Amino acid sequence: MRKLLLTALNTVALVALAGVAFAAEAAPEVVSMTSLATAIGMAIAAAGCGLGQGLGLRAACEGTARNPEAGGKITVTLILGLAFIESLAIYALVVNLILLFANPFIG
Rank of each mutant, 00 (worst) to 15 (best):
I44N: 06
A45I: 05
A60I: 00
L57Q: 14
C61V: 13
A47H: 05
G71E: 14
L80K: 04
A59I: 07
A43M: 10
G63T: 01
Q53N: 14
S87I: 15
A83R: 12
F84M: 06
G48W: 09
I79V: 10
I44K: 03
A47M: 12
A43G: 13
A59C: 09
A46W: 08
G48K: 04
G52I: 05
G72M: 05
E62C: 00
M42N: 10
I85M: 06
E62T: 00
G63F: 01
T64H: 10
I85D: 10
V76H: 09
L82M: 07
L78I: 14
K73F: 08
I79H: 09
C61M: 13
A47D: 01
G81S: 11
I79W: 11
E86Q: 15
V76Y: 07
F84G: 05
R58E: 14
A43W: 10
V76K: 14
G50L: 06
L78P: 05
A59T: 09
G72P: 04
A83E: 11
A65M: 00
G48Q: 09
I44Q: 02
G48L: 09
A43S: 13
C49M: 15
I74A: 02
C49A: 14
N67L: 01
L51R: 11
G63C: 04
I44F: 08
T77F: 02
F84L: 02
P68G: 02
I74L: 01
G50E: 03
P68I: 01
L55G: 04
A70M: 03
G81E: 12
C61I: 06
L82I: 07
T64V: 12
E62N: 07
A47W: 12
A65N: 03
L51M: 13
